[in-house]
């Protein structure tokens, strides 16, 4: 009964994340699984706030705060430098938000994937620029309210997980905080697969930005999975698909009902969203063996 999770204490209390923050929870599982033999690269983001404030750090490993567009390039450089110094064991992990991954850091990420750099890249995806006051990113889903899409976003979420798969990298996985054992397993698996770029997209509901209670992070994350909006799966070498947790009968209406960013939706809007989710799920389902 209960989760079996082994942690090595790297992520510390006293950090500046909001109460109940899913990103802090994700960092806990990721960093405490990576352990002390790791170097983190963090671009401007909530993650940078949570890792600080200087001269204090919440992370008991070296952390390099790079520019918003350069996380993958910086991580690749650090890894190459370590290797040239004869260090083949230290994991270099870039931990960026969806703004720094889907939008601004995308070119560097795609290039690092194309060169198959030996790094782990984790995107903590809260579906918008939450740190600067909830602006839309290309990770914001259809119809969601942000301060820059006051009537709801007009285009669907960019499918970065599948774009990364198309780079034929050794490992791509989707994970989320409501399934901590699954997230930890995927980080461990990424550590075991060496010699190429490993990408994990972690859905981390932003409590303030999505309009859910402080206590609802893990629950909202599970609703995303159970309603089919965010299936948890992993892909090896760009072709071997495995489904971990898919929809279990909950609907998009169940998911959007608890979030203020969707409160302007009419029943017809919810139906349109449901059709979009059904379509994406059917497409994805075909890829599982």
């Amino acid at each position: 009964m209960g989760y079996e999770i082994q942690e090595e204490k790297v992520f510390n209390s006293g950090h500046a994340a909001c109460p109940g923050c899913s990103e802090a929870l994700a960092l806990r599982f990721i960093l405490n699984t990576l352990g002390k033999d790791a170097i983190a690269v963090v671009p401007p983001s909530c993650i940078a706030i949570i890792s600080g404030p200087q001269p204090l750090s919440s992370m008991s490993i070296p952390v390099y705060q790079t520019t918003l567009e350069a996380s993958a390039a910086s991580a690749a450089g650090i890894k190459r430098a370590l290797i040239s110094k004869g260090n083949n064991h230290t994991n270099v992990v870039a931990i960026a938000g969806d703004g720094g991954t889907y939008d601004i850091g995308f070119q560097a990420l795609s290039a690092a994937a194309e060169r198959n750099e030996d790094i782990i890249y984790v995107c903590l995806d809260n579906e918008g620029y939450m740190n600067t006051g909830t602006q839309k990113s290309s990770a914001t889903p259809s119809m969601a309210f942000t301060t820059s899409t006051p009537a709801g976003k007009l285009s669907p979420k960019k499918n970065v997980p599948e774009i990364m798969v198309a780079h034929n990298i050794p490992y791509m996985a989707t994970a989320t905080t409501g399934y901590p054992d699954d997230l930890v397993r995927k980080v461990k698996k990424a550590m075991e697969i060496k010699g190429g770029l490993r990408f994990i997209n972690v859905l981390t509901p932003c409590l303030a930005g999505w309009g859910v209670p402080d206590s609802a992070g893990p629950k909202t994350s599970r609703l995303a999975v159970q309603s089919g909006i965010y299936p948890l799966y992993e892909v090896e070498n760009g072709e071997t698909y495995t489904l971990n947790y898919g929809p279990n009968g909950l609907s998009v209406a169940d998911y959007v009902a608890t979030q203020k960013r969707y409160r302007h939706l009419s029943p017809e809007d919810v139906e349109l969203l449901q059709a979009e989710v059904n379509h994406d799920w059917e497409k994805l389902q075909k890829k599982f063996k």
């Binding site: 209390s13 006293g14 950090h15 500046a16 404030p53 001269p55 204090l56």
Partner: peptide, 12 residues
């Protein structure tokens, strides 16, 4: 080394 300590001294 710029970092002098851990955030665990902060009483959040």
């Amino acid at each position: 080394i710029w970092t002098t300590g851990s955030t665990d001294i902060l009483n959040t």
